[in-house]
Amino acid sequence: MATSSIAALIVGLALGLLGLALVRQSWLRRQTRHTGLMATGWSLMILATAPLVVALGPDLGVTTAFMAPMLGAIALLSPGMIQPVGAASNAVSPASASRTHWLASLRTLIVCLLAGPAALTVTLIASIALLRMTQGIGWTMPDSLLLVFLFAPLAWAGLAVISALDAPLRWRSASLAALAAVFAILALLLSPSIS
């Protein structure tokens, strides 16, 4: 590694860790004025990306810019974390409102079906729409596939959260059905890209 790269690496790591230190200071002063300190800290952490990219290249540089503050913060917090956790209170509150066991199990099963197969189906329909849309605006196939491959887990995760919300089941089911319909219409309106 060239001397300039080593210097950039050191600058990048120093900026990231300085940023982290400022964010911690802002937290320690949270009862008083601390916005500027916090903004500066986060800005420095973002700014650290530039020298790290110079030192390590775009891919490794950005990755390292994320990792350095993470490790620094965990190291700061670790002294309190390696101690044994004490005993919890054994206070017992009255049982919550009763619901027959089988009804609760059925509800859990439906939620699992919503969060699993149903959310996956909506995700796949949305993925088709997304692929056709990006192909329609001239993206290359690898770029479109990258977007879809990253979109699919995120979309499924979001839909799984909606499915597991403590809201009426009919609303959750209707939301998924509506989303599926919207994406299906979108996919049908966008013609297949490859002929």
């Binding site: 796949l124 993925s127 088709i128 692929l131 056709r132 596939l145 879809v148 491959f149 990253l150 699919a152 887990p153 499924w156 995760a157 996919a187 297949p192 890209s193 490859i194 002929s195």
Partner: peptide, 20 residues
Amino acid sequence: AALGLATIVALVLAQSEPEM
């Protein structure tokens, strides 16, 4: 998840695209 689901997503996408 991207690695794990790539196969199933690609399978569905391929079904929706003619001649692919």
